[in-house]
Amino acid sequence: MTVLLGYLHEILQGLTTTLSLFLISLVIGFVAATIVAAFQIRFPGVLAGAVWSLMFCIRGVPLLLILYVVYYGFPLLPFIRETALWTVFASPYWCAIICLAFVEMAFTSEIIRGAYYQTPKEQVEAARSLGLSSFQTFRVAILPAMLRNGFPPYTTEVILLCKSTALAFTITVMDIMGYANEIRARTLDIYQPLLIAGAIYICTVVVTRLILSSLFNMIAVGGAETADQK
């Protein structure tokens, strides 16, 4: 029992790393995804098509491979090695965040795009016919529908991101998985450290789900209200 508590204590040292990897890449990924999706929606054409294709390709490549490219490949590029970028790419932690955010952007932008195109045309037409400007139309008719349609797949995506942070240990980041794997290699205890780590991940996901669902309830109700007021 004391051994287990010792493991737990050691593994929990990685909790801040895991959580910060998760949250920072979540925020960066979401902002980038919004920009990418807005660009595709606002300026449809060849360029938007190219952006979409790029996002499609990113979604097809495993995160692990992207981590390796950035962590092992980028330092060999002179313009990274010899500029201020080096301080970022020399750190496995920031490499992991960049990769996670990059992949998150590709998936989230598609969710946003999908949510936008799912918005019923009639609602948009109704709003325009009431004389609302295009921004007001977006605010009143499109955004609430997007939130309703986009939130469930986005929840799934956020959980996937949370799980993906565990891959960071393959480029020497000491997160929960990193500590658990280190204990495994050092002590040859297999089940104890890994199951403890697994339990921590499951708890994280449970909490994330709770936060997201209460957020969804808040936004969904609020969105409906603003739509009614106008």
Binding site: I159, T165, I190, L194, V206
Partner: peptide
Amino acid sequence: VFRSLPDILLLIL
């Protein structure tokens, strides 16, 4: 459980 557990953790386990 298995939609919450990191795949890599399960693989190593």
